[in-house]
Write a protein that binds this DNA or RNA. Structure first.
Lengths: 354, 354
DNA sequence: AAACGCTGGTAAATCGATGCAGTGAGGCTA
DNA sequence: TAGCCTCACTGCATCGATTTACCAGCGTTT
């Protein structure tokens, strides 16, 4: 342990502990400059650091936020964790890491622990359709912001939500394929009932409609009835989707994948079928994970601007922490299409012409 | 805040706070079963959770460990973070996440903060050749274990180190290529002076020697003089290494890459040169990140058994926390070669025959 | 000169859990 | 029955920072 207490500082500066406390907490406005200087010098000399436990015991709060993600082994969540930690650190907060594995029970358990730990707030990354399981925590005073999940009707009012505009992202992706001349499009989703999936599917359909194509023409690959959410599963799903869709009559030439891992799987499935992404078929991903740029071919994808989103998330959470007022403000961040090499002009006459 | 204190529990159970404290801390041996039951029931009914701040103020310790990684956005560190968090959680510890960006100054600053926070211990993931910058922390009583860095002569004696046997891993990789008939081998390293790189290079050379090949025959690509360590940089470096090496006279046919991202870059560089990994050239990676299996071609690589390593790391750290004795035990974990499709028999006559 | 307000501080109570020293009841020995 | 133990708990000081209550000193007002 460090061992230097506020009293030792007070003694060294020739003042009382209260005065040192006032300095530490910025209540220096009505203070003699000389006293202030003495205290600051004493703090410096003893290299005093306030004991967080004692501080928290009084204030009931600690400069720590909890981050609950499905799994930080997933590159998207890893990248978020890094960004959020950087923002938090700059504001004097530390980040406690929790991997929920997308299990509501674990999300709840983590929430309870974090509450008991006295964390200032929690960023919950959960795309479960309902967040009812955490309302007891909110009632008990836990400050929370939901990330990567747009606000839903019926959500607890005190819960702010930060998310990319999933519908817009899918629209951007779909429109890009349409602009390249693709007319047979497929929407490949690697996960079951999440809010994001529904939104992206909605964007896909509305882009088709806007282009005068019957949305029913868009092929939707619903995914197997798997409960697995991992990267490997996403990629495998994309692969089998591509293989199956491409061996059907009138196969699609453009693919909108639910995320980048799924898009990678689609590219591999296309190769299995003797076609290649960026030539005969076009594939658009979602997220723009680091790998998207490194893959062969480099993926055209919808970028979630993580640094900006992380900063917004933290600001929302802090606003929530500092104010006692209830309602949280929700934000939809505008995504951006990053065009790389997995998309190209549609082959003349479609794949039937090969 | 929760609001339920130990005194309320005590009152509800009709005992003193001390007795509740005894129950909480497992000192139940001399206790009447009936009393124990009453206390436990009261805890249950009030859904009481001990206030960690108060507990820490008394004991000076908190059930939290710090994890300092270069960047959790890197899939390897993300995977470790997840494994370690799982192990820690099972033992009742939480994990505080820190991204050092491989900056010794940041490592030190995080260490100081963690010490002030009263964390039980820290896992430091740093492959810097010297850990001198953290010795002041160790002196001040911080319990620390180094991960992914074999113990070095001159390391502080109280520092345990957990690492894969890097030399053995590189030997496995190299021997595999030799067994496939490759005779012109290159060692491609994407990073500068780290302990791991040196060890892996040593393994590469000793495998050559063992096969009766002059180690000087092995081409070592030293990497550009970059200070960047990111994934993107690793991959880019692999790519330019492959392009350059393959356009030289008598190009190598087998590549040992410093890690999987670098191996992926080498594969792309080979393609740039009109060759493909798993056919004309063979590439072995290191780490076995998730992506290794998903890449095209799936990478042959040296696996670091992360779950096992994470478990060992945590056990070492806890031993260190619980005992006051100084010396830490260091461990070298045996890696395993995972053969996939990026390696194949050497082309007859080498690449000159094409 | 008494009453009042303001300044620049101090002393002491407080937060909740911990763990040692202590206590009373009951049992056992001599 | 006095003396001594053991059992099974309780009382209380303690950790370090915060914060409330308070006070002395000084100038101003009435």
């Amino acid at each position: 342990m460090n061992g230097v207490t506020i009293h030792q500082v007070a003694e060294a500066a020739g003042v009382s502990a209260s005065t040192v406390s006032n300095v530490l907490n910025g209540r220096t406005d009505r203070m003699q400059p000389a006293t202030l200087a003495r205290v600051e010098q004493a703090i410096e000399q003893l290299s005093y650091r306030p004991n967080r436990a004692a501080r928290m015991l009084r204030t009931g709060r600690i400069q720590v936020i909890g981050l609950i993600v499905p799994s930080v082994a997933n590159p998207f969540w890893g990248a978020l964790a890094r960004e959020l930690e950087a923002v938090a650190l700059a504001e004097g907060y530390h980040v406690l890491l929790c991997n929920s594995e997308r299990d509501p029970a674990r999300e709840l358990k983590y929430g309870e622990e974090l509450l008991a730990d006295g964390v200032s707030g929690v960023v919950l990354c959960s795309s479960l359709p309902s967040l009812d399981h955490v309302t007891p925590l909110l009632k008990r005073g836990l400050k929370m912001v939901a990330f990567d999940r747009a606000a839903q009707a019926g959500d607890p009012p005190s819960l702010a939500s930060i998310s990319v505009d999933n519908a817009m992202g899918a629209e951007l992706a779909t429109r890009h394929l349409l602009d390249l001349g693709h007319r047979r499009l497929a929407f490949v989703s690697g996960s079951v009932n999440s809010v994001n999936r529904r939104e992206r599917l909605r964007g896909f359909r509305s882009a088709l409609e806007e282009a005068g194509i019957d949305p029913a023409q868009g092929v939707v690959w619903p995914g197997a009835a798997t409960s697995e959410f991992g990267d490997k599963e996403s990629a495998e799903l994309g692969r089998s989707a591509a293989r199956e869709l491409l061996s059907a009559p009138e196969p699609p030439t453009g693919f909108v994948a639910i995320n980048d891992m799924c898009a990678i799987g689609v590219c591999r499935g296309a190769r299995d079928a003797g076609l290649s992404a960026g030539r005969e078929v076009s594939v658009v991903g979602f997220d723009d994970i680091l790998l998207a740029e490194l893959f062969e071919p480099p993926l055209t994808t919808v970028r979630q601007p993580l640094p900006e989103m992380a900063a917004e998330t933290f600001q929302q959470l802090r606003a929530h922490i500092e104010s006692t007022s209830g309602a949280g403000r929700s934000l939809l961040i505008r995504p951006r299409l990053v065009v790389r090499e997995s998309t190209a002009a549609a082959p003349v006459g479609g794949l039937g012409a090969r």
